[in-house]
Design a protein around this nucleic acid. Sequence first.
RNA 1: GGAGAGUUGGCAGAGUGGUCGAAUGCGGCGGUCUUGAAAACCGUUGUACCGCAAGGUACCAGGGGUUCGAAUCCCUUACUCUCCGCCA
Length: 422
Amino acid sequence: MLDIKKIRENPEEVFNKLKLRGVDQTLFNDYVDLDRKWRDALIEVEQLKEKRNALTPKGKPSQEQLSQLKELAESVKKKQDSLLPLEESLKALALQFPNMSCDVVPEGDTEDHNVEIRKEGVLPSFDFSPLSHDELGVQCGMLDFDTAATVTGSRFVNLRGKGAALERALIGFMLDEHTLNHGYEEVLPSSIVNSRALQGTGQLPKFSDDLFKLEDTDYYLSPTAEVQLTNLFQGKVLAEEDLPISVTGYTSCFRKEAGSYGKDMKGLIRLHQFNKVELVKIVHPERSMEEWQMLLGHAESILKKLKLPYRVVELCVGDLGFGSARTVDLEVWFPSQNRYREISSCSNFLDFQSRRAMIRYKGKDTGKASFVHTLNGSGLAVGRTLAAIMEHYQDVDGSIEVPDVLKEYVRFERICKITKNL
RNA sequence: GGAGAGUUGGCAGAGUGGUCGAAUGCGGCGGUCUUGAAAACCGUUGUACCGCAAGGUACCAGGGGUUCGAAUCCCUUACUCUCCGCCA
């Protein structure tokens, strides 16, 4: 949510930012006008109330006072009721506006305008034609899409045998890195969240199409642990000296992937359910960019330890997520696709989420409550990491070597082709 | 799933329909005393919104209602606790 005071002070500046993200001028003007109307009406209501309060005696009112008060009460109620639709519209509009992007964010409307910042690692050279992870996964008995389609439907997978073990190992490895080496608190949150939480992080009201909603409830399957982890602090006023707060958590994420028909139909890239280890930081506004860089480094360290080549990409304005002011994606190399694919997205939301979710800190010296900044990033998307590992660590015989850092977790060294699928 | 009890300021906890933004205690902040600290004593101490300001308005879990007037009465939702049942 944007700062209404900023909009009042400098509507042009705010709109120029929003325009980059496709916000309609009329919609924005409506909002500004409505706010003016609301404030005017509020002043009237409060004046009426002031009058009423002044007239109200300490004890029982006389007959004469009573009739006056009755009249006033009537007009207060009437005027007050006229406020309600204004407030509702204002709130509904306010929730629709995306965050303003930072000045450094490159212009552009599609991912084609994203800017590559740097490349890390060495691209592999195979002396055979590398298989895709889904081919490898099926022939090694790791990935079972058929049974998943039977039990559930398309875009689901059953991880089996060493595939399941490797995924589990990856989760453990990532969490250990973040908790032991990067100072995050581990949280294992609920998978189901309510609409208030989703509104707090910005998934609602605009993006309900991509969410699985549980029938007859206010519950949704969470699309990302960003929701659970950020909303841990919903409504809180934190002590300034407790910042920054860093939490990490592994969850399954559930997305409808509406509008992605035909895209990435094979393999682990785009599923309705996938595992992700998420990083969330609640930070002091003055430190948010530094903390964001650190968070990015934490996500990168996983790729480095797994020896997977990747690149760092700064998203253009048009590709930014709704609440983000600035986002950098990590994209890992997929040999079979001969291109980089997103595996992490690290964003700084500034005070956009904290306004919605009412997350504040109390200044040590000022004693005043101000909004914190929130950051998050994947650290990493586990399924995609598994896929990348399979492709990079494959051999000519169709077997897959386990990356060194995972060997102590899984206690096997290699995954080989199997002859029979059950 | 059934029965009951709750939800009040940072915390604990009182509150008869009007004098309640709300007693009291703790905590916090400031001061006196002290070489310093503790103790004691005195004072002070919620948040949001509107307004250039003076100031005003609102808030006792959320929403609705009764009333001239609601923390207090009624309805409703959420959450917490106790007991019973069921269950991993």
